[in-house]
């Protein structure tokens, strides 16, 4: 599995994300600076990391989503490439139009930084295929703007197309329908607020996050 992690000024989970991808696939992820206009050849997965790209100015992820590399990422996704965006990466995916809805200020106003329990809402995706529907994972969240909103039509669409990947067991930010992560229409783009790359080593207190990277490897190794 060949992967790349996009690095923006203010990204701070890029290296952890690269470690997660490398541990699961056995192949080092390539780090790609946001000013590049093209992705490396032959990629299977592009990952957008957490952090505070461009200082969260204007709107979280808004400026990053307009950087040159994102045109290439959107093209990659539109051609069927796999893309995962975590936290700020999820915000960038939404701002770039690869995922629908919006992420607003947490309903409790405060920055939320803690381990949360996630419930796997679907096993039918390249990111969750080693999990069972209903399986619970402990993964940290650390965000100020993770309150996912969708109007009733979009919410119905996400629900009826089985595109909600994860829900919070105890909603920390006010997200509609407890949504923690969603999939694109072709199921190959995942955006999620919780950080699987931050709980990916027993030495750090757990490795529930590794399921997502292992699912990707499994999904991509499977015959088409």
């Amino acid at each position: 599995m060949k992967s790349a992690v996009i690095v923006f000024p203010g990204s701070n989970c890029d290296r952890d994300l690269a470690v997660g991808l490398e541990r699961a696939s056995g192949k080092a992820a390539q780090m790609v600076w946001h000013k590049e206009a093209a992705l490396p050849e032959g990629l299977d997965v592009v990952a957008l990391p957490g952090g505070f790209s461009f200082g969260d100015y204007l709107r979280c992820g808004a400026i990053a989503a307009r950087m040159p590399i994102m045109k290439a990422v959107v093209d990659f996704a539109n051609k069927g490439g796999h893309v995962i965006g975590v936290c700020n990466g999820f915000q960038v995916l939404i701002e770039s139009g690869l995922l629908p809805g919006a992420l607003m200020r947490n309903s409790g106003i405060k920055f939320v930084c803690k381990d949360v329990e996630l419930v796997t809402a679907t096993a039918n995706s390249p990111f969750t295929n080693t999990l069972q529907k209903g399986q619970r994972l402990t993964v940290p969240v650390a965000h100020h703007d993770g309150n996912y909103i969708a109007d009733s039509d979009l919410l119905f669409k996400l629900q009826s197309e089985d595109r909600i990947a994860f829900r919070y067991a105890n909603n920390p930010n006010g997200s509609v329908d407890d949504i923690a992560g969603i999939l694109s229409e072709n199921r190959r783009v995942l955006g999620m607020m919780p950080h699987p790359e931050r709980l990916n080593d027993p030495a750090l207190g757990g490795n529930d996050g590794s399921h997502i990277f292992e699912s990707l490897v499994k999904g991509l190794m499977a015959p088409a």
């Binding site: 607003m104 200020r105 106003i109 309150n147 909103i149």
Partner: peptide, 10 residues
């Protein structure tokens, strides 16, 4: 119709 937590805090 969009919830504004900051407006509420103010």
């Amino acid at each position: 119709g969009v919830l504004d937590p900051q407006g509420k805090a103010i």
